[in-house]
Structures are given as C-alpha cells and as structure tokens.
Design a protein around this nucleic acid. Structure first.
Lengths: 157, 157
DNA sequence: TATTGTTATACTCTATAACTATA
DNA sequence: TATAGTTATAGAGTATAACAATA
C-alpha cells in the first residue's frame, strides 16, 4: 500500500510528540518531572537565584520555592545565601543532581538519534538543517540568542 | 555572522519544544490542560468507557475518574451508563466541549503553519516528508495504525 | 472470581495573597 | 518603598489501595 500521508501540521506535530514522549519517559525512569529536568538543566551552566529561576522557568516565585525545596529534599540541589544581596538565595546542583541530569540527557539524546536513524544519512542531515532553520528563525523573531544559554532549552534538555 | 549551528538532536528537540509550546499556549488560552485537550481530542471520534480512556490516555482509572469529573463539572463532557455493560460508563463530549477542542485545534494548527512558513515551499514540503517518514516508521515499529485513530494523536491534537 | 468504576489518601506542581527580611 | 523569598491556601493532576456493583 501507499503509506499513510500526513498533513504538514500532523507530521511535525506527531514528531514533536515522539520527541517529547522520549524525554518524559527518560525523565520518569529517574523519577524526575519535566520541570525538574528543566531545573537541573539550567543548573548545568548557571547558579541562579530563586528569582532568576522563576523567570527562566516562567513560574511564580512561590512555585519555585516548592520546586527547589523538593529537589533539595532529594539531595539534587542546594541553597545558599547570596554574598551579593542579603535577600537572595543562590541555587546550585549537587553532584547527585549533576549525575542525574547527565544520565537523562544521554539516554534522551540516544532516543532522538534512534528516531533520526530511520532516515538515511543524507535525509537525516536535510531534516536537521530544516529544523535548525526554523528554530533559529524563531529564536531571532523572539529576540533570543540561542548560544547564550538564556534558557534551559539552549542545550535542549 | 554564520548562524548558530545546532546538533541533530538539538535541532529536532528544540523544534519539538516550539510545537509543544504552541499547543500548551493555545490550550491555556481556553484554560485547558494538555490532558484535557487529549481527552476532548479522543472524544471527537469516540465514545469510550472510563476504562478505555484510561488505556488511551495511559492513566490509572482513578485518575480518569477525577479528570472526567472536572471536565463534566465544566460542562465539557457527559457521563452515561453503558447499555451493554452495567458496570461501564460511556463518556461523550458536550457541544461546548466540541467547540472548545475545535477552537484550540484550529489556532494550534495555524501556529504550526506559521513556524513552517519560515521555510520556502519546497523546503517546507521536504521537512514534512522527512518528519512523516519518521513518524510512520515509528508507528510501524510500535505496531500502531496511524489512520485507525487509535490514539488521540492520530489527528495530532 | 474478575472487571468497572469510585473513594480515600498522598504527593507533585501550580498560582494568589499575605507575610518577613533586606535593600 | 521596592524586591527576594517563604508560607498559607487552593486546585489540578497523578498514583496506590480499598471498596461497591456488576459480570
């Protein structure tokens, strides 16, 4: 039979569900939620305050209090008073937290590679290039510098 | 400058975040969660029992009880006893529920079209075709028939 | 006995509002 | 006064375990 033909929107949307499903599944294996993965992802290259975390995660500061408290209780992050501002608290990953995000990240990347491996090399490169162009164009449109690590998504996960 | 070059994994992953972000944003505009969107999406072409919903949504049946109860309280779905099995409950969308999922769906599709519009026609078609091949291949691998509407994702949203 | 669904309970995640401490 | 953070409270969403009704 001629194989199922998907519309533009469906093809891209369903691919996004496959990718996000892989991320959720890998996070779940380590009993992490998506937001916890994002938190630990941010802490790979930053030492943000609670307030900065709220901005980066697009959450209310009270939500971040709970999020960080639960991560701290699990030994994944630590809180310390900011030396620069007596009101602020700086959040850092513990070695266990670093290990966990690394583990999720590696397994997730392998999942995405496996999805892309459905295509021959040349097509895979084409897909990457096309996806990249959309992502870069959209980043420009939103005024975000992808390389600055401004968001937890700069390195995807 | 030469524009940022993303790795295979990052390009596809970040595209998936853009798509899912659009879906979340559109759902949120109508005060729907992702799971509520999935629920209403399923009810577009089915009249499942609570138990079938649990399977389709990959949730525990007790979670579905609460999910459907909240949707019912909002007037989006209705429950009625199954005529075929005295133990079962059949769930159906109300006209308000149908209207809502249609609205989210249309606006989300426009968002994805807008993302794809970053590319010239020929490239857009190439991306769709490549994404489609991965989705179809993966569906086969998982033994799912995309056209049967087996999941709420068959029509993406 | 097995299955369907609900209820009780507990935990994560989220927000709003009120509060404390610091700037 | 304004900002950073926490706490109290409320609600969605999820799961496990125990239960009632039906098969």
């Amino acid at each position: 039979m001629a194989h199922a033909q998907l519309s533009d929107v469906d093809a891209v949307t369903q691919l996004s569900f496959l990718v996000q499903g892989a991320l959720l599944a890998r996070a779940d294996e380590d009993e992490l939620s998506l937001v916890q993965v994002r938190l630990l992802g941010i802490l790979r290259d930053r030492r943000p305050t609670m307030n900065e975390l709220a901005t980066l995660l697009e959450l209310d500061k009270s939500s971040v209090t709970g999020l960080v408290a639960r991560a701290e209780r699990r030994g994944l992050v630590s809180r310390s008073p900011s030396p620069r501002d007596g009101r602020s608290t700086v959040v850092a990953p513990t070695s266990a937290g670093r290990r966990l995000i690394r583990s999720v990240s590696v397994r997730f990347a392998a999942d995405v590679e496996a999805l892309l491996a459905e295509l021959p090399d040349r097509d895979r490169r084409a897909l990457t290039s096309l996806a990249s162009r959309i992502v870069v164009a959209e980043a420009h449109r939103r005024g975000v510098d992808l390389l600055a690590g401004t968001t937890s998504r700069a390195r995807s996960v």
